[in-house]
Structures are given as C-alpha cells and as structure tokens.
C-alpha cells in the first residue's frame, strides 16, 4: 500500500504542477512556486483522498493548525488528521 507521504506528494505534484522529484519533505511550498489556486486544489484532493476535513483559510494560512509551509509539514498535518479520525 502506498504511504500517506507518497500519496500527498503525488497530489501536490499533480495539483501544483511541480515535478515529483522536487517534493522532498524539506521543500518549502512558496519556493516551489505553487500558487494559491494550486494549494487550494491540493487541499481539496487531500480531503477527498483521505476522507478528512482540512482546516485551511487562504486569508489566515497559518491558523487552523494545518501547516502548509513545507511538503513535510503538510504530510505531518495530514497524518495527524488521519490519526484523529480513527
């Protein structure tokens, strides 16, 4: 079974139009050139893929406890949401 990490990376690569090889955990979303539409679409795809609800408002990106600053922080946040669900 594909790990959460791999699935999140696939989603961000597709929705953010970024090459997968660039999406290592330390990579910063801003530096990858992923725009706000790419981010909103990625979050929607993550919600659909994992059956979770992601707290994210584009006006307060830092709030809500879902850290979108880097690929790794998104993976950790998604894992936390999955753990909280079960």
């Amino acid at each position: 079974m594909t790990s959460v990490k791999d699935r999140v990376i696939s989603i961000i690569a597709e929705k953010g139009a970024v090459d997968k090889s660039l999406l290592h955990p330390e990579a910063k979303i801003e530096q990858l050139g992923i725009d706000s539409l790419g981010m909103v679409e990625s979050i929607f795809a993550i919600e659909e893929a994992f059956g979770v609800s992601v707290p994210f408002n584009a006006n307060q990106p830092g709030e809500g406890g879902f850290d979108i600053s880097s690929v790794g922080s998104i993976i950790t946040s998604v894992e936390a949401l999955i753990a909280a669900r079960t």
Binding site: V40, I43, N57, A58, N59
Partner: peptide
C-alpha cells in the same frame, strides 16, 4: 466555501 476565502 470551496475557494477557502470565506470568513466563518
């Protein structure tokens, strides 16, 4: 809601 620009 989908656009995530709405205030609650």
């Amino acid at each position: 809601e989908g656009l995530r620009v709405m205030s609650e």
